[in-house]
Amino acid sequence: MNQLSAKHVEQQIKNNKKVTLIDVREPEEVAAGKIPGVINIPLGLLEYRLHELKKSEEYIIVCRSGSRSGLATSFLESRGYNATNMSGGMISWEGAVEIAGQYQPAR
């Protein structure tokens, strides 16, 4: 399984690299703080929302600690998608976050 650190993902965003992030946490977890621009697809709904994803696109998968995103990454890879797990999840994220529509700068 491909993995990137939260710091590496943050650097890609800062360098304006096209990054499509999918957060597999539950909506209430995402509402408490998310990476700006992330797409929320809870892990339990991922298989039902595959039609929203393109196999030609690269996805970075995010969760709270890296565990659920690891499961989602493995699932997506098994279906032929280009997915990478953000190891450490939001616990390791030091970049900007959006909380209830309000932008919070990096820590």
Rank of each mutant, 00 (worst) to 15 (best):
Y81M: 03
P36M: 15
A100V: 05
M90L: 15
S56M: 03
I41G: 03
I99D: 06
M86N: 02
W93P: 00
C63N: 05
L76Y: 04
K14M: 13
N85D: 15
L53I: 07
K55N: 09
G33S: 13
K14Y: 12
T84W: 04
L4Q: 15
Q3K: 05
V19I: 13
I22Q: 07
L71C: 07
N16W: 04
A31P: 09
M90V: 08
S67H: 11
K17C: 11
Q12V: 05
R107I: 09
K55Y: 05
K18G: 07
I91Y: 14
E57L: 08
L43P: 00
V30C: 03
P42A: 15
N16P: 14
D23M: 03
Y81F: 11
Q12M: 14
G101K: 03
P27C: 12
G80E: 00
L21M: 10
V30T: 11
I60T: 08
N85E: 15
P105E: 11
E52L: 15
Y81S: 01
S56F: 07
S92P: 05
E77I: 04
K54I: 08
P42V: 02
L45E: 15
E28R: 00
G66A: 07
R68E: 00
G89C: 14
E57N: 14
G101E: 12
N85L: 07
Y81N: 03
K14R: 14
S78H: 09
Q3I: 13
I61R: 01
R25S: 04
E47P: 05
V19M: 04
S92L: 06
S87I: 11
V97T: 10
G44R: 08
A83E: 08
L43R: 07
S5K: 08
E57P: 11
